[in-house]
Design a protein around this nucleic acid. Structure first.
Length: 414
DNA sequence: GGCCGTTAA
DNA sequence: TAGTTTAACGGCC
């Protein structure tokens, strides 16, 4: 049972349906088998299997009385959600299509009809649709991509270029919502409620126009989702990718119908592990979250319960946080290097990272109250150690001396 | 408060 | 040969 989910293609991405998953997974397995990374993944999966077993055991012990009472509590919680539902806002999620790859294809026409990806042999950031047909996708090592598709062209990342394009795209976003919320270089939420009131137009046409503007100014396409909250808008932006849009009407009947058949993994925040845990309880769609509300109430934390119930009702955020409220809480800097046990090399790297970090902090005029060091060993085990500073700082030597001590103590404890 | 794990892009 | 980087947050002890 344990290895079913191990090292297989995650096809939860546009352009990845109808693939020969078995063949792709065999290639991924063959390329992974016996590696340290694979062993670590196996260990992780074993831990998850343990969690699942524990969950099953606890589920079997639930009495009908407990379940009935938990269902009642869940119903009260959901009723309260529905009483306070806000369907008055129009949220848009816009996502550039295969962003980095699209920029590279735009600038180098010889790439346009070839399977290509942006990244390196170590890791791919994104791939075009021709490559996705082979199972090559973001977050896959380049050498595995090459095994899946030997003719794959891998273009190195050019972050400055993507950042510049992103500026242009964000200017378009700003025209529709001054307070738009960027999630990354290629993706943002907008609340166009006020824009629609002001211009007396409908959301479909406005978003169509927004996407046209993006294409005119960048020669790149974007996809968009329109819905009454951010959770739904995000799911919708994926539906007609690439170069498409989808609108989910702002009424609870349509929303429920939409969400009832939506696979849980499509909900932002539910990843591999939560998907496995929920599936072991028989929860495959967001609608199932409601059917199993009693079990969920009894088996998960209050916070998870509330999150799942909101998802089951298609409820999500309706207000974007103003920029000034989105304060950064940490800043970090890490690098992967050739394996070594030479302390001097490690300490040297620690110093470089400390210096770079301090530089970035000064650029942003921010101060840190604690220093955390993280080290990953050759077998992919990660350890972290943190220490509070006596006073906030962005001085390289203070950060470095603290980081060095933490590093040494980590190395000694290992 | 410290550390680990999960998620996302 | 090769399996990232950065940020945020929840759970647990």
């Amino acid at each position: 049972l344990g290895n079913i989910n191990l090292m297989s293609l995650n096809d939860n991405k546009a352009g990845m349906t109808g693939l020969d998953k078995d063949k792709i997974n065999r290639i991924i397995q063959a390329a992974s088998k016996g590696s340290k990374f694979y062993s670590k993944q196996q260990e992780n999966q074993t831990r998850i299997d343990g969690q699942i077993a524990g969950l099953q055991e606890r589920m079997l012990r639930l009495t009908p009385t407990q379940l009935l009472s938990a269902q009642h509590e869940a119903d009260l919680y959901i009723q309260n959600l529905l009483d306070n539902i806000d369907l008055t806002r129009t949220l848009v999620h816009v996502d550039m299509d295969m962003f980095y790859a699209a920029v590279e294809m735009r600038d180098n026409p010889t790439l346009r009809n070839k399977p290509m990806a942006v990244g390196g042999m170590g890791m791919l950031s994104t791939s075009n649709y021709a490559a996705r047909k082979f199972g090559v996708r973001a977050a896959m090592p380049g050498f595995i991509g090459k095994k899946l598709c030997p003719e794959l062209v891998i273009v190195p990342v050019n972050m400055q270029k993507y950042a510049a394009v992103s500026q242009v795209v964000r200017e378009v976003f700003r025209e529709y919502d001054e307070n738009f919320a960027p999630m990354s270089l290629d993706e943002a939420y907008m609340d166009i409620t006020e824009y629609l009131e002001l211009h007396g137009s409908n959301s479909w046409d406005v978003v169509q126009e927004m996407r046209s503007k993006i294409e005119e100014r960048t020669q790149l396409t974007a996809s968009a989702g329109i819905a009454s909250n951010t959770f739904l808008a995000k799911v919708c932006s994926d539906i007609n990718k690439p170069n498409g849009q989808y609108v989910l009407p702002a009424n609870h009947a349509d929303i429920l119908e939409f969400v009832n058949k939506l696979p849980i993994r499509k909900a932002s925040g539910i990843g591999n592990v939560q998907e496995q845990l929920l599936k072991s309880l028989g929860v495959n769609t967001c609608g199932d979250l409601y059917l199993k509300r009693g079990e969920i109430k009894l088996l998960f934390s209050q916070l998870s319960f509330e999150n799942y119930m909101q998802i089951s009702q298609g409820i999500g955020g309706t207000r974007l946080e103003p920029r000034e409220d989105r304060l950064r809480k940490s800043m970090s800097n890490e690098t992967t290097f050739k394996e070594t046990s030479d302390r001097n090399i490690l300490i040297g790297l620690c110093e470089d990272l400390s210096n770079e970090l301090a530089e970035e902090m000064k650029r942003e005029e921010i101060f840190g109250q604690a220093v955390t060091i993280k080290i990953k060993s050759h077998d992919f085990y990660t350890k972290t150690k943190v220490r509070q500073l006596t006073a906030p700082t962005n001085e390289a030597d203070i950060i470095y001396s603290c980081a060095r001590q933490l590093l040494v103590s980590l190395l000694e404890s290992a």
